[in-house]
Nucleic acid binder design. Structure first.
Lengths: 254, 254
DNA sequence: GTTTAAATTTAAGCATTCCTAACAAAAAAG
DNA sequence: CTTTTTTGTTAGGAATGCTTAAATTTAAAC
């Protein structure tokens, strides 16, 4: 029901609160920065969304999503992540291409259509970046505890379970060095000097800054939990491959 | 590049000109009625679109699309019709459900994504209503001459080749009486009194008013031309079926 | 505990896109 | 060929969502 702009604000507030974990009140500045708009615009919109019942706003303090706001935000997140999975697993886009497309599509998708997509994809639980997909009632799937790169021990092997897709540039870099969901990595060493980490990916070593590493989350290799992604992704991928191999000749246009 | 609203105006102007065939200047009133906005809003927008180079406007006369306007309009039509085909043939929506969804999606789809969808669908040439899909350069596929119901002769058999989806209510009615693309019909009789036509569809007779019949276009049965649709649609349908039957167990969420 | 700095809100203004009502031009009717 | 009707345009106004600049409140520094 809200406009595209209102949906973007609600989504941003959800995402910021989600990252902040405990401290769940979100500030005007954080929202303004995430959406790349002025603080004044954010302040105005926060008031409008509060009047509409989506937010609880304490002047000069911050905002929290109401139940209705949370429901709406989770619905937008759901649309976004289902589209992302569709784009990678059915149309074959790469994980660094899907965010921007899903950002547009999420605002133009009815609940009816999302249910059809969800069904078609086999009720997936995670998007191509490893982020959870809320179900139609706003419930998030159970997630095993993930380790940020900074918490991974040297000498041990892990599998990539989640990537924060804040920066397209960073995503492109990750793709370039062979990182992808479920890829196995070995933590070679960590430099105390700048807290950077050397990772071995497919036999090649790469040094990742602390900041870059904070976008990567792992599960220990041999932890069965990592299958929680791949069961969905491999299934959908297979369907797409069957589809594409089934192309009958003579179906292309004049 | 244009906004959603501008895209809607350009699309409407294209569609009206397309229906009017010869007389290709489009009036303010026609556009206002199609988009369900005031004539004043249309008049304003026409001036803005003219300044932007999409329209040639002669005051108090009407508008024509410029080359740039035509290119843009065909691109929007392309996005709309490709989404419609995707929705029916991949997600399994019915032909009367897809128009409204495509109306939203068309404004949120990059050229990049449309090319991926086009490729996935096998470069289809017609949408689920039998309307032609422009290719990426704005070229329309060749279409055999179609007969509106009023030109179909009594006692002869035809196949439905195209439906104008102006009214959702009418589309639902057509669906209810068994009409679908490529369905075979027998023209039983025509009443001179009101120019209504009695059609036999799947063994049952239905009387269609002249106005309703003007939304239906046919090819004579035994005219090989009718395959020009089905070759695309059956192919895509097959791919979707293979997909859905391939659902591996245990892929649904927690 | 003032003073200074940072964050937040208000104010004024602009671009879009719509509306209704008033006005102007063109077409149809007599 | 004037008069009426229809169609098209302009004027004034409202809602949304953004901007910059000026206040205001809170937090930090000394």
């Amino acid at each position: 029901m809200p406009t595209i702009s209102k949906e973007d604000y609600l989504k941003a507030i959800y995402r910021i609160a989600d990252e902040n974990e405990k401290e769940s009140t979100v500030t005007t500045s954080e929202v303004a920065e995430m959406l790349d708009v002025s603080k004044a615009a954010t302040s105005e919109m926060v008031q409008r969304l509060s009047e509409l019942g989506y937010l609880n706003h304490e002047r000069y303090k911050g905002v929290k999503l109401t139940d209705e706001g949370m429901r709406t935000a989770l619905n937008i997140i759901r649309r976004h992540r289902i589209w992302e999975l569709f784009l990678t697993d059915v149309l074959g886009l790469s994980w660094n291409e899907v965010h921007a497309e899903a950002e547009l599509l999420e605002h133009s998708t009815s609940d009816f259509l999302i249910e059809k997509l969800d069904e078609f994809l086999g009720h997936p639980r995670f998007n191509p970046h490893g982020e959870p997909i809320p179900d139609r009632n706003g419930n998030l799937p159970e997630q095993p505890a993930l380790l940020p790169l900074s918490c991974c021990e040297t000498g041990k092997e892990y599998r990539l379970a989640k990537v924060l897709d804040d920066s397209l540039e960073l995503m492109n870099y990750f793709t370039g060095i062979g990182l992808a969901l479920n890829v196995k990595v070995l933590v070679k060493s960590r430099l105390d000097y700048d807290n950077s980490t050397v990772l071995c990916i497919n036999g090649t070593n790469h040094n990742l800054s602390e900041k870059a590493g904070n976008n990567l989350f792992f599960l220990p290799e041999n932890d069965e939990g990592y299958f929680y992604h791949s069961r969905v992704h491999q299934g959908a991928r297979k369907k797409a491959e069957v589809k594409n191999s089934k192309k009958s000749p003579g179906r292309t246009g004049a």
